[in-house]
C-alpha cells in the first residue's frame, strides 16, 4: 500500500523491510528517521553501503567476510596460526571475535550437515579444512559448532575426517550459561552440564 511518499522512497522501504528484524512498519520508521537526518544518517549510510558493496568479499583463506581477498584476521601476523576455530557461519565467527578471548584463526564451514535440508558433506568447506589441519604449524582445531543435533553430527563428522591429521580436535564446553539458573534451564542443558562437570579447587 502506498504511503504517498514517492516511488523511490517506497522502494527503499520495501528493500529495508526484507532485512532481518525489520518489517514494513519498522522499515518505514527507519527510512523516515534517515531522511529527517539526511546529512547525519542518510548520506553517510548511502556512502557506507556503496563502499561495502564495492569491497565486501569472502576471504579466500577462512571464508570470513572482509573487504579484501584475505580478511583482517587471516592477514594479522599476531594471530596464533597453531589454533584453528571451526564455525558454522560468519555470524558465529563475529560472535567469537566479540569475546576477544580467541587469538587463533578461523575456518567458516558455510553450514552444517542437515538430514532435513539435505545438506551433505560436499556442500561444506571441508576439503579446505582438512588441508589446513594437515599444515605443520596447526596444533589444535576447535569445533565451535551449535549444540544441536545437526551441529554435533557435523562436529563428529569433522573429528573423524581429521583423524588422520596430527592435530588435537576439541569442542566448546556445553552446560549452564552465565547468568543461568537451574530452575529455568531445559533438561538437556542440565544433563550436558552434569556430564561436563569439573572438579573444584
Amino acid at each position: 500500500m502506498s504511503d504517498g511518499a514517492g516511488k523511490e522512497i517506497e522502494r527503499l522501504i520495501e528493500l529495508m523491510s526484507r532485512l532481518p528484524g525489520l518489517g514494513p512498519r519498522s522499515a518505514r520508521r527507519a527510512v523516515l528517521a534517515m531522511i529527517q537526518r539526511r546529512s547525519m544518517m542518510l548520506e553517510p549510510l548511502a556512502q557506507a553501503l556503496a563502499d561495502v558493496s564495492a569491497t565486501a568479499r569472502e576471504c579466500v583463506e577462512c571464508g570470513n567476510i572482509g573487504t579484501s581477498d584475505v580478511c583482517a584476521i587471516c592477514a594479522d601476523p599476531r594471530r596464533d596460526a597453531s589454533l584453528v576455530c571451526v564455525v558454522e557461519d560468519v555470524s558465529d565467527l563475529w560472535a567469537m571475535e566479540r569475546t576477544a578471548q580467541f587469538r587463533g584463526r578461523y575456518h567458516v564451514l558455510g553450514g552444517v550437515l542437515s538430514a532435513l535440508d539435505g545438506t551433505g558433506p560436499e556442500e561444506l568447506r571441508l576439503p579446505r579444512l582438512v588441508a589446513l589441519a594437515g599444515a605443520p604449524e596447526v596444533r589444535e582445531v576447535i569445533l565451535a559448532l551449535g549444540t544441536t543435533v545437526d551441529g554435533q553430527t557435523t562436529a563428529h563428522y569433522i573429528a573423524e575426517a581429521l583423524a588422520g591429521c596430527s592435530v588435537e580436535v576439541s569442542s566448546l564446553a556445553q552446560g549452564v550459561p552465565v547468568g543461568g539458573e537451574l530452575d529455568y534451564l531445559d533438561d538437556g542443558t542440565i544433563s550436558a552440564a552434569l556430564r561436563a562437570r569439573r572438579v573444584m579447587g
Binding site: 549444540t147 544441536t148 543435533v149 554435533q152 573429528a159 573423524e160 533438561d187 538437556g188 544433563s191 550436558a192
Partner: peptide, 11 residues
C-alpha cells in the same frame, strides 16, 4: 523429555 542432549557426545 530431551533426548538429543543425552546422545550428543556419542557419534
Amino acid at each position: 523429555q530431551a533426548r538429543a542432549a543425552q546422545v550428543m557426545h556419542d557419534a
